[in-house]
Nucleic acid binder design. Sequence first.
DNA 1: TCGTTTCTATACTTGCGAGTAGATTGCTTA
DNA 2: TAAGCAATCTACTCGCAAGTATAGAAACGA
Lengths: 213, 213
Amino acid sequence: MALPTSAAQSAPSPFRTREEKMRDRAEKRDAVLRAAVRMFNARGYHATSLDDVAASLGISKPTIYHYLGNKEQVLTECVSRGLEPLRLAAEAAKSEPGSGLERLRRFLLDYARTNMDDFGRCMVRTGDELLSPEGAAQIRARKRDIDDALRTLIADGVADGSIAPVDVKMTAFALAGALNWPARWHDPAGPMAPDAIAAALVDVLIGGLAPRG
Amino acid sequence: MALPTSAAQSAPSPFRTREEKMRDRAEKRDAVLRAAVRMFNARGYHATSLDDVAASLGISKPTIYHYLGNKEQVLTECVSRGLEPLRLAAEAAKSEPGSGLERLRRFLLDYARTNMDDFGRCMVRTGDELLSPEGAAQIRARKRDIDDALRTLIADGVADGSIAPVDVKMTAFALAGALNWPARWHDPAGPMAPDAIAAALVDVLIGGLAPRG
DNA sequence: TCGTTTCTATACTTGCGAGTAGATTGCTTA
DNA sequence: TAAGCAATCTACTCGCAAGTATAGAAACGA
C-alpha cells in the first residue's frame, strides 16, 4: 500500500501512519512527564507516587511503566527537559555578537526565565540525593557544562574589559545561586511575571549594591 | 542528704546531680541531632532511616524516640539550629553602628558562613515538601523573619545613600539565593574555606559585574 | 483469518522503614 | 525495701508505594 504523504490530509483518515503513531506515543509520554513534573514541584519527588501521577491523568500506573522505565527515569527525563534550554542558551551565547557583558546579560536572562518554568524548577530542585549514583553523575556532568559556559562568558567579559576583574568561579556561583533561587520561591500562579523577575535580578547582579560614582 | 555544690568536685563523684543528668540528656540529644544532620546532608532526608542514624551512634532506634518525638521532629530541630544563628545575626545587625551598607555587609558575611555549617546546610536544603503543613508553616514564618530583617537592612542602606536605589524585595532574593547556594555545592572537606567563600561572594554582590567608572 | 505487537487494566508481590509494645536494668526517692 | 522513673534493648506491626505478572482489547501485518 502507498504511504499517504503528510500533505494528503483532505479527509482525515482514522488509520494512523507509522509517524502518527510515533507522535501519539511521544505525546502521551509528554503528558506523563508534564503531569509528573507538576506534582514533583508541588509535593516533592518522594511525596509523589506514580499512582498519584497516573490518577491525575485518568490512567493506571502500569501505563506509565509502558512509556518510562521506572520512577527515577521519570524524574531524570524531567530534569533533562529543564536542562536542555539552558544548554541551548549556553550554545547560543558562544556565537553571539556584543561584549562579554552583553552576551552574559542575555544568557542570564534566559537562564533565570528557564528556571521558572515547570521543568526548570524541577531541574534546580533535584539534588543529587534524589538520584542513583549513575543518574546523579549524568545530571552533574550536564550541569557542569552549563557552569563552564557561564564561567567562560564571565572570563570573556573580564578579558574585554566589559566586566570588572572579579573572581570568575565565585562570580559564577553567585550568579547561579541568585538565579536558581526563584525555583524555590517563585509562585507561577502569583502576580509576578517571570520576565520581570529575571530582569530585576539581573539588574541587581550586574549593578551591585554599592552606589556608582 | 546534702546536695553537692558544683564547686565541690575535688574527687569526681559517680553520682550525678539533677543538673548533670539534664546536661547528659541534652548532650545525648545533641549527639543524635549532629549524627542525623550529617546523614541528611550527605544522603538526603528520605534516604536516611532512623535506624541508620541510630547505628552510626551505636544505639538503637527506640533510643532516638526516647529523645525526640518522631523523624520530622529530628529534622525540624536540625533546621531550627540552622536558623538560630541567622536570627541572632539579624537581631545584632539592627543595633550595630555604621551605614546601612556596612551593617548589611556584616550580616551577609554571617549569613553566608552560617549556611555552610552542618545545620545551616540542612536548613537551606529543607524545603517545605519535606515537612508536614504545620512544620512547614513554622519554619516558613521563621525564615520570613530573617528575610524581613534582610529587607530592612537593604532599605536602610538605600535610605541613607550607602546602597544604590535598588528594588528592595528583588535584591533580598538575589542576595539570599547567592548566599544559600553554597549549601548545595560547598564541600566542607574541600580546600575552600567558608570564610573565603563568604567574602568573595559578598564582594561580587556588593560590587556588581559592571566595571566602576 | 490468524499470529503479533501495542496499549491498557486489575490485582498482585515485596521490601523498606516509621513507629510501638513490652521487657530489662539500675538509679532515686519515699 | 518497695515504688517509680529513666534509659535502653529486642522484636514486633503495619502501611505505603515501587514494580510485576497476567490478561484482554484493539490494531496491524501476512
